[in-house]
Amino acid sequence: MTDTKSKGTKLYKLFVYFVLIALAIVIVVPIAWVFLASVKGNAEFYGNPWSWPKSFHWENFTSAWTTAGMGRYLGNSVFVTALSLVLLIIIALPASYVLARFRFFGQKFWNGFFMLGLFINANYIVVPIFLMLLDGDTKLQQLIGHPFFMNNLWVLSLVYASTALPFTIYLLSNYFRTLPASFEEAAYIDGAGYFTTFMKVMAPMARPSIITVILFNFLSFWNEYIMALTLIPGDNKTLPVGLLNLSAAQKSAQNYGQLYAGLVIVMLPTLILYIMVQKQLTKGMTVGGVKG
């Protein structure tokens, strides 16, 4: 009896391992293949796709970096992601704090206002935002002689930060609600004003939540492309839009090595970040949020 049972569990374990490894292969192999393909010569793409690179064509990376402009796009992406994150935290943190810890006239209304924002996905409002900025530029053209809103990485960052506000405020104000009131009382007794109490006592305590917010929004800002594609039609593209152009160009130019090198340039920062913080990311994920 015990013998057959242990044999059964062994078989079951073996089967489970097999299934797990199968899924892992389906996920890892395409990504690893891109890394290998990024150092292959162009001629090698016409043979067996599974062949090992004959020699390392690092020039794929230099050509993606300079000729295809990925280096410049990387700079733009770093700028937009960093600026959006800074704006988001500066704007969301005080708002979340006040919404969570103060009683005031209209508090319920503003809470509901931000909660409703959770239902609005940026994909629905790309077009009206585009039209609004275009309209603003037409008016500016008449007024001061040159446009401002379109093709502007600062404006794009502001749009990113704004569309991330509802979820961020939801997350941060939930965190502030869990803190005991004694911290503020002690600060007030010591003579600290509202502003000092917030800056010196409460904001530092929100650090774990702020880190979660930064991780999630880093990924969504870095990976975002439809807003960037629509609002930056000029040369100041971000990395995913640059990659989109590169894969469109590749269809006619057949420059595969350059394309896969470009892919690696886009993937690598997120993969490195993920490996460093994967525990925190998957733990924080369970507090909610839907991708896309």
């Binding site: 892992a24 890892v28 492309y225 993937m267 997120t270 993969l271 970040l273």
Partner: peptide
């Protein structure tokens, strides 16, 4: 490993 696809851009 299973979570990796979720961190990649849709363009990638």
């Amino acid at each position: 490993i299973f979570y990796i696809p979720n961190i990649l851009s849709i363009v990638v």
